[in-house]
Amino acid sequence: MTDRTLDTAPTKPPHPLQDIWRDFRRNRGAMVGLALILIVTFLAVFADVVAPYGPAEQFRDAFLSPPSWLAGGDPRFLLGTDDVGRDILSRLIYGARLSLLIGVVVVTLALAAGVTLGLCAGFFGGLVDIVVMRLMDIMLALPALLLAIVIVAILGPGLMNAMVAVTVVVVPHYARLTRGAVLSELGRDYVTASRVAGAGPLRLMFATVLPNCLAPLIVQATLGFSGAILDAAALGFLGLGAQPPTPEWGSMLANALQFIQRAWWVVTFPGLAILVTVLAFNLMGDGLRDALDPKLKR
């Protein structure tokens, strides 16, 4: 008898993270995305070990050598070489470092700035709200890439400045999202309770309300990775981002147009790397959205 009651006794509810993971795992696309991100991260971290050559190492006997499986291909260079005899595979692997770095830096800075602005706008309301949100609207009036180009035009081209530009451009999205979430949370009882208990504004903002606004921010941050990588690559392609010797994927394509008739591999692989990485983050972001959004839960 006692055994029976023990069997049917309610088990502990699963941890919320387990819940999310279970939903996330059901989404095949999201799992593919996660796997790809792990692979790219692994390659980026261990680039020194994995890459056959250095990113700037030149082989003067092999300019524009085709991929190794093609006629005339050199077995030393799996994906061929570029116009100054650098191994494309190695440059792509080192480029993964830059792309992930761009994603991390841009998303972190944009999150910090956007969340702070959004929290202030939502909390203080009134003039602060109007000024901040108007400013964000002005920035959103311009297409992201155009605004980024303008900022680079002011700061001068370069990888750092491109990252700054892409960060500034995406801040409004985080600010708007945070403000919206804050406004919907502010009226809840737990916030009032905390306020009555004497919590100061900073504690209320960051410790009480912010954790409850995280779900949409996490999704936006994941999707923000792909946007940052894409925009930084576009700037690199236009010659405004990372400068030539740097193995950044976008800038590797910058002068590819002139080899398009002779060497398709110089054009094809860097873009494929961008596409796969961006796709991975987008797939994972979609999966996270479905897993975190209670409205879509079955």
Partner: peptide, 17 residues
């Protein structure tokens, strides 16, 4: 989702190629 993730400068180059 692939089209949405496409770096269009590369996509344009592929189309030309």
């Amino acid at each position: 989702v692939t089209g949405f993730s496409m770096p269009i400068f590369w996509w344009a180059l592929l189309l030309v190629l």
